[in-house]
Design a protein around this nucleic acid. Structure first.
Lengths: 237, 237
DNA sequence: TCAAAAGTGTTATAGGTACACCCATGT
DNA sequence: ACATGGGTGTACCTATAACACTTTTGA
């Protein structure tokens, strides 16, 4: 049986199912990495914390759906969301067959919307290392997404979404240290940054710090995209 | 709106959708990397080549579904399938909203089932570098799966599924050369294999070759799983 | 002058690349 | 003897890790 038989099978058997997106929204504020959870107001799993998610609208692309959920909880649009994995165990949802496509994004923590969406009784940031028991299979989804985020961070400048426009190399280093829960050597880290031509050093310096002021840097997206294209063309994967 | 409202929304709006799995089954025979395609016998995309796929049964896990498709086309069971990505563009299926979860696997090419499943008018191996125009968004899915396969091969002994039980280091090298479309230096390749303690060197040698006979090796799964556990525990991602 | 963090340089080691050379077998 | 691929060793280069040291600011 394949897709061409879509309308030749007993419709009741196949259409008692639905699909949703769940969003693992990581928040960073320079000090810790948190994840945005909502408190459920209805059964099943009433009063449990859960990942924000929603059914996908009939005429809505999956990533658009994820961005809608993200927009409802934060004030943010056009944040790049990344698909993580699809979870489809038969009994993962007690009310029926619901598979869910997990998406992830990382945002600056302060951008939480002060007027959360109607479907969330409460929204709250939780440190990724200290998450309460979650509804459904959301703990598995969260773990999966965190792994995914770490892998993404090795290949892409994820920090561009969460650092201030002008930032110091120490702030950049701290992003990686907090994400990977690991200290890096200052000198070696800075050596690496010298090859990153998309890090544009400004003439401006830090002010009012009681130590030697740091140089400020900006992310140069043009330069990044160009060199990324070159890498993709070389393609020595 | 979130999952808890599943049964409080107009059912007609959300249940005009379905989900399927599509399988990107790669075949290897020591000479080339191919992908298994089926020829569609019905509209839409009648007479087009396509990836084998099927709707997911109501009480069937996603990976079980993928394994069922794989079993129907090859004679193989218990082949590890890996989820690649979920494709859900609104108009990807001309007859309705169908999202599809793509799975991939790599098998020894000769294991193609001589009695293909009823839903496939024809099945055929196609070299990954020379694939015909495909139905739906299957070209995108295939490209995605191939990338995924290459990444998997960097982290896992995928070749264990496709090489003969006893194989030479040259056969192992050729697997990587064909997959990555790239030649490797013999000496350097063999140096790397020395750290792979799950490669068990046998006392047996090749026979009836008109050159120095090669040593034969076996994949030692026990050793591999143990060292993989250690790596996962170190976890310095 | 001191604390604190910025910023640079040096060294040792590990890992990768290129390449040369010898070995065992069938014809 | 020779063609063919198996198998090993070396020298070079680059990436990384550990660590020491200097610099600039506010208090």
């Amino acid at each position: 049986m394949s897709q061409q038989d879509l309308y030749s099978i007993p419709i009741d058997d196949f259409f008692k199912s639905a699909f949703s997106v769940d969003c693992v929204i990581f928040g960073y504020d320079g000090k810790s990495l948190d994840v945005l959870l909502i408190k459920r107001g209805t059964e099943p799993f009433k009063d449990f914390w859960a990942l924000p998610g929603d059914l996908v609208y009939p005429a809505e692309d999956l990533d658009v759906s994820a961005n809608r959920v993200l927009h409802d909880l934060t004030s943010l649009d056009d944040i790049p969301v990344t698909q993580v994995h699809t979870f489809g165990k038969v009994n993962r949802h007690p009310l029926g067959r619901v598979i869910t496509i997990a998406y992830t994004a990382i945002v600056e923590k302060s951008h939480l919307n002060p007027h959360p969406a109607s479907w969330a009784e409460a929204t709250e940031w939780h440190p990724v290392g200290d998450v309460p028991k979650l509804a459904f299979d959301h703990e598995e989804i969260l773990g999966n997404a965190l792994l995914h985020l770490k892998n993404l961070a090795k290949a892409e400048p994820l920090w561009a979404n969460v650092l201030p426009k002008k930032f110091t190399l120490t702030q950049l280093q701290e992003f990686y240290e907090i994400l990977f829960e690991k200290k890096f050597d200052k000198g070696n880290f800075r050596k690496k940054t010298r090859d990153m031509h998309f890090l544009q050093k400004l003439s401006e310096l830090q002010k009012n710090v009681n130590h030697r002021p740091s140089a400020l840097y900006e992310f140069d997206e043009q330069v990044y995209l160009e060199q990324k294209n070159v890498q993709d063309l070389l393609f020595d994967l």
